[in-house]
Simulated scan of single mutants.
Amino acid sequence: MSAALQDRLQTASTEFQKLQNDLAGAVEARQRLEAQLSENELVKQEFAQLKDSNTVYKLIGPVLVKQDHAEAKSNVETRLEFIRGEIKRVEAQLKDLEEKSESKKMELVEIQTTLQQQLASPQATATAVA
């Protein structure tokens, strides 16, 4: 019985570690998206300050290409919408991973408690007999 519990403990521990790694990756992705959102919001603010006489350029490879104001603003708005959507998706993923991680953590505690009780039982019996 103890060997089966130890196997379960090892499996659950491995699964918990994988969930923790996935959670760390999702947090990192969320941070990257927040940085991109911030950058694009700054660009949007800069566009709001531009006059029609200002020229907007877009970097395409090694070349700066002149771009229409409306098109540039539209591109930034589209990018912002996309990033916000990705943030929502990652937040949902984070919530799911946190729930799974908490569940796996509780399972680990339960297995460890059972294992400790089994290990303590023979010692108590041996002490009572002696």
Rank of each mutant, 00 (worst) to 15 (best):
V63D: 15
Q45H: 08
N40H: 12
E28A: 14
A48F: 03
E39R: 07
V56L: 02
G25Y: 13
E46Y: 01
S53Y: 04
N54E: 10
T55M: 12
Q31P: 07
R30V: 08
N75L: 13
D52A: 06
L42A: 09
N54L: 01
E39G: 02
E34S: 14
A48P: 02
A72H: 04
S38K: 13
E28G: 10
E34K: 15
I60E: 15
A35H: 06
A35M: 07
E77I: 05
V65I: 12
N75F: 11
E34C: 10
E41C: 01
S53I: 06
Y57A: 03
K44I: 05
S53F: 04
L50T: 06
S74T: 01
D52W: 06
A26W: 03
R30E: 15
E34T: 14
E28N: 14
L37I: 00
R30I: 10
E77Y: 00
Q31W: 10
A70E: 14
R32G: 13
I60Q: 13
E28L: 13
K66M: 01
N75W: 06
N40D: 09
V65P: 01
E77F: 02
N75K: 13
A70Y: 11
T55W: 09
R30T: 11
I60H: 12
V56D: 05
D52V: 01
Q45M: 06
A48V: 03
A35F: 04
K73T: 06
G61D: 10
E46K: 11
S53Q: 09
A72C: 07
R32L: 14
N40Y: 11
L64F: 08
G61A: 01
V43G: 08
V63L: 12
K51Q: 13
A35Q: 11
P62D: 12
A35C: 00
V65Q: 12
E71W: 06
E71R: 14
L59I: 11
K73C: 01
V76G: 02
Q36H: 12
L37V: 00
F47L: 06
A72W: 03
K51T: 11
L64A: 09
E46V: 02
Q67V: 08
F47V: 03
N54S: 12
E34V: 14
K58I: 08
Q49A: 08
E41I: 07
N75R: 11
H69A: 00
T55Q: 14
L64S: 01
G25T: 15
L33M: 05
E46W: 00
E34F: 14
L42Y: 00
T55G: 01
V56M: 01
R30P: 08
Y57M: 05
A72S: 06
I60R: 14
L37T: 02
K51N: 13
F47H: 04
E77V: 05
L33H: 07
L37F: 03
Q36R: 14
V27W: 10
V63A: 11
G25V: 10
V76F: 04
E34R: 15
E39I: 02
L64N: 07
D52S: 07
E77P: 04
D68K: 04
